[in-house]
Amino acid sequence: MEIEILLPLIFLFVALFYSSVGFGGGSSYLAIMSIFLTDFYEIRSTALLLNITVVTIGTMMYVRHRVFDWKLFWPFIIPSIPLAYLGAQMKLSEKTFFLILGSLLILSSLSMITKYVEDRVKMRDFELWKRLGLGGLVGFFAGISGIGGGIYLSPVLNMMNWQNARKIASLASVFILVNSLSGLLGLLAVNTFTFDSQLTIRLIIAVFIGGMIGSYLSNKKFNTKIIGLLTAALVMYVGLRLLLLHGCGIKI
C-alpha cells in the first residue's frame, strides 16, 4: 500500500483514539512519520499542523458543551505559550530530539495507565503558583518535543485529582491548541517550518475525520477507559521504539 493511502488511514485512527481523551496525537504522528519520511523538520512541522487540526475540533466541542472553563484554565495556559515558543526555537539534533521525546512519552504512558487503573478520590485544587509553574514547564517541553504538551499535562492532573476527567480533557485540548500554534510560530521564527503540501492535505483530512469522531464520543460521556488504556499502550510502544531506534539502533 502506498504511503499516500497508508499514512492517512493510520492517522485517522490515531486521531480518533487521542481526541477521545482530549489529545491531538502529535507524539504518534511524529513517531509514525519518522518511519516513512526523512526530513526531520518536515516531520516536526507536519505534526504540529495535524495537532492543531484535531484539537481545534475538540476545543470547539468542549466550548459548545460548556465544559471549557477559562477561570480554571488560564494559569496553565498563559505561561505555557511563550515557553512553548522558546522551546520550539531550540535547534536540537535529530537523535537528541527523538531521545527526549521517547523518554517523555514513556513517562506519560505510565501516568496514563495509573490514571485508568486507580480508583478516583475526592477532587482537589492546588495553589496558583503550582498551576503557573506546571503550565510553563510543560509548555517548554512541548515546544522542544514538537507537540502540544497535553499528553504530559493531563496525566499529571489526573494523578493529582485536579477536577474531573472531562474537565481535564478539555484543558488538555485547549493547552495543545495554543502551544501547537506557539510552537509553529517558533519554527517559523528560525526558518525550520517546512512540509509537503500534497501529503499534508491528505493527512489533515484524515485527522479531521478521526478528530470529529473521537471528540463526539468524548463529549457524549462515552466510557473512554478502554480507549485510554489502548492509547497508553500505543504511547508506550512509540516511546520505547524511539529510544531503542535512536539510542541503540534497534528497530522494533
Rank of each mutant, 00 (worst) to 15 (best):
Arg120Gln: 11
Leu104Gly: 05
His246Arg: 05
Arg241Glu: 14
Ser218Pro: 03
Pro75Gly: 09
Met112Val: 04
Leu177Ala: 03
Leu132Trp: 06
Ile147Tyr: 05
Gly133Trp: 10
Ile144Ala: 02
Ile43Asp: 13
Ile147Val: 12
Gly247Val: 04
Pro155Val: 05
Met236Gly: 01
Ser111Asn: 13
Leu92Asn: 07
Thr96Cys: 11
Glu118Cys: 05
Asp196Glu: 15
Gly139Gln: 00
Leu234Ser: 08
Met112Tyr: 10
Met33Trp: 09
Phe13Met: 08
Ser180Lys: 00
Ala142Lys: 00
Gly26Ala: 11
Phe193Val: 06
Leu92Val: 01
Ala233Pro: 02
Ser154Trp: 05
Thr224His: 05
Tyr237Asp: 02
Ser170Arg: 01
Arg166Met: 11
Met61His: 06
Asp39Leu: 08
Ser34Arg: 01
Ile81Trp: 03
Ile43Cys: 11
Ile151Gln: 00
Leu7Gln: 00
Asn51Leu: 09
Val67His: 04
Lys167Glu: 15
His65Thr: 15
Leu188Ile: 07
Met123Ala: 12
Lys167Gly: 13
Arg241Asn: 14
Ala169Asp: 13
Leu132Cys: 07
Leu188Val: 02
Ile250Pro: 12
Ile57Met: 09
Phe13Ile: 06
Gly211Asn: 03
Ala232Ser: 12
Ile43Glu: 14
Ile52Met: 08
Ile147Met: 13
Gly58Ile: 13
Leu86Tyr: 15
Ile78Ser: 01
Gln89Met: 15
Cys248Gly: 00
Pro82Gln: 10
Met1Cys: 01
Asn158Ala: 09
Val238Lys: 04
Ala88Cys: 09
Phe140Thr: 02
Ile227Lys: 03
Glu2Asn: 14
Tyr216Ile: 07
Leu234Thr: 10
Gly210Leu: 07
Ile100His: 03
Leu242Ser: 02
Ala47Pro: 07
Ser111His: 02
Trp162Met: 12
Ile78Glu: 10
Pro79Arg: 03
Leu217Lys: 08
Met123Gly: 09
Leu105Phe: 10
Leu132Ile: 13
Leu49Asn: 14
Ile227Leu: 10
Ser27Val: 10
Lys220Ser: 06
Gly249Glu: 08
Gly148Pro: 08
Ile144Gln: 00
Glu42Thr: 14
Ala84Val: 09
Val63Asn: 01
Phe208Asn: 06
Phe68Tyr: 12
Gly150Leu: 03
Trp70Gly: 11
Gly135Trp: 09
Tyr18Ile: 04
Leu6Val: 07
Leu7Lys: 00
Ile227Val: 13
Lys95Leu: 02
Gln89Tyr: 10
Ser28Glu: 03
Leu184Cys: 06
Leu107Trp: 04
Ile32Tyr: 05
Phe126Glu: 13
Ser34Leu: 05
Tyr41Ile: 14
Ser93Asn: 15
Phe23Asn: 06
Ile226Arg: 14
Leu86Thr: 14
Asp39Asn: 11
Lys91Leu: 14
Ala165Pro: 04
Leu181Ala: 14
Leu50Gly: 11
Ala84Glu: 06
Phe222Tyr: 14
Thr114His: 08
Leu37Arg: 02
Lys221Met: 05
Leu245Glu: 12
Arg166Cys: 01
Leu105Trp: 06
Phe23Pro: 01
Trp129His: 12
Tyr29Gly: 09
Ile81Lys: 07
Ala31Val: 13
Ala84Gly: 07
Trp162Cys: 09
Ser45Pro: 02
Leu49Pro: 15
Ala142Phe: 00
Leu48Glu: 13
Gly149Thr: 02
